[in-house]
Nucleic acid binder design. Structure first.
Length: 430
RNA sequence: CGGGGCGUGGUGUAACGGCUAACAUUCCUGUUUUGGGAACAGGCGACUCAGGGUUCGAAUCCCUGCGCCCCGACCA
């Protein structure tokens, strides 16, 4: 992509009403647009990040057998009444609206009812189980107070996975697989070393649910982390009884602020029973299906990455989620030779399947570098009269640096290509 | 939903109740310039969130509504 064509623009100042770091940086860098409180549009750069995150999630969920579906946002009142969740006192953040004929519909905040209703047509026998389905879809939640930029909105993309098992043993096995898939997702999106599985309150069916909490001061949750064991306890279940049960010692815990970037939950028969999702077992006996649900908010995950991976100059995207991997910057000369060479390199990289944002704008170097830091693409390559004369390119990784520190390497184009393709391979195997 | 704060060009700010609402930035034109947000010249862009009221006169004071932000509660 040539930056001169990009539908986006950077700005020096963030809107004054935007306080959260993630929204400030993402707006300044032109990734998102705020439509109203808690409601954000994604511009081309932001959408690319969202799609990369979505695809990582897809790969990992597909790998444990999840099948992708796409359900509706408009929800039928009847099935929600059966589970007792239509009431505004039970779910206080409903968005509801009306059809022309006067009947009420809801805007989905989650999809247990919807998917179970579908499955009644497809699950009859023990032979139809186990299986799991997921989607990446817009959720609507009428939050009393939106905040934290894209980390807590009223409309947001969520990956929601639902599992359907014959018995608890089968459910538990899948639940453990889901845990591992989640772990890989956070590793691949760059949050691995500061994201911890966290025990949180469960429900009527299981004592605990598990959250994935990423340490950041921007988070809303308080957790108690055992760094050695790599597990944590949410404040909501932080009592001696729980600690004893989990074999965690109070003195090994540190209190941390964190953001919940994922949640997995054993549902038991909470939904299958009222909605009558049953199957006939080997003995011909009708049984309720055992369910689990597993959520990840894509925008929240993206916001968390920005919160955690950014510095004074801007965002520092990990390779796997950056909108483009390479930022190619041409510092133009009068003769136009640099632009010519940069275009060639841009084409060469693009042909190799490497995402490049090519800053071909007629702007001064300072502006280009400042924009580049703000956008946060992981690999910066600079071409100028100087580098042309030396037969090299300048390479600088966009990692968090000390203020004023700008380490630069001079390498040949061949070496650059080799490095970038090496990184691609690492990505695939990790 | 309780408490507090705030609404002025795209963005950030200014303006005693009193001239044509100012400055910076962005944007446009031109000259010059090209390694960390260049300089100069010219220009576009706001009936000051909406509606009412007070006043000779309102961005400014008062009322109502709407919106935004913060703290708290909530987050199935």
């Amino acid at each position: 992509m040539k930056q001169s064509q990009l539908f986006s623009k950077t700005r020096k100042e963030a809107p004054k009403d935007e306080v959260s770091r993630n929204a400030q940086l993402l707006i300044r860098a032109g990734y998102i647009h705020k439509e109203m409180a808690g409601v954000y549009s994604y511009l081309p750069l932001g959408l690319r990040v969202l799609n990369k995150i979505g695809n990582i999630i897809r790969e990992e969920i597909n790998a444990i057998g999840g099948q992708e579906v796409f359900m509706t946002s408009l929800q039928d009142k009847a099935s929600w009444e059966k589970t007792g969740r239509w009431s505004d006192t039970v779910i206080d953040n409903w968005f509801k609206t009306e059809l022309k004929n006067g009947s009420e519909v809801g805007l989905a905040s989650t999809h247990e009812e919807a998917l179970v209703s579908i499955l009644k047509n497809y699950v009859q026998s023990f032979r139809d189980l186990p299986f799991s389905a997921y989607q990446i879809q817009t959720k609507f939640r009428n939050e009393a107070r939106a905040k934290s930029g894209i980390m807590r909105g009223r409309e947001f993309l969520m990956k929601d996975l639902y599992s359907f098992s014959r018995d608890i043993k089968e459910h538990d096995a899948f639940y453990e697989k889901a845990k591992l898939a989640y772990k890989r997702i956070y590793e691949r999106t760059g949050l691995g070393d500061r994201t911890f599985i966290t025990f949180a309150s469960g429900g009527s069916f299981s004592k605990y649910s598990h959250e994935f909490q990423t340490l950041t001061s921007a988070g809303e949750d308080v957790i108690y982390l055992d760094k050695k064991k790599g597990i944590a306890v949410n404040k909501e279940v932080f009592v001696d009884e729980v600690l004893n049960e989990l074999g965690i010692k109070r003195e090994n815990l540190v209190e941390e602020k964190a953001v919940e970037v994922g949640n997995i939950f054993s549902l038991g028969t909470k939904f299958s029973e009222p909605l009558e999702l049953k199957f006939v077992d080997e003995k011909g006996v009708k049984q309720n299906v055992i369910m689990g649900c597993y959520g990840i908010g894509l925008g929240r995950l993206m916001g968390a990455v920005v919160e955690v991976l950014s510095d004074a100059d801007g965002i520092v995207w990990p390779d796997a989620v950056a909108p483009f991997r390479v930022h190619l910057i041409a510092i133009a000369d009068k003769a136009g030779k640099v632009a010519e060479e940069a275009t060639k390199l841009y084409n060469a990289l693009t042909e190799k399947g490497i995402d490049v944002l090519y800053d071909d704008r007629d702007a001064r170097p300072g502006e280009k570098f400042a924009d580049s830091d703000l956008l946060g693409l992981p690999h910066r390559v600079v071409l100028s009269e100087k580098t042309l004369a030396e037969g090299v390119v300048e390479y600088k990784p966009r990692r968090a640096n000390a203020v004023g520190e700008r380490p630069v390497e001079k390498i040949t184009q061949a070496e650059l290509l080799a490095r970038l393709s090496r990184n691609t391979q690492n990505e695939k195997t990790c």
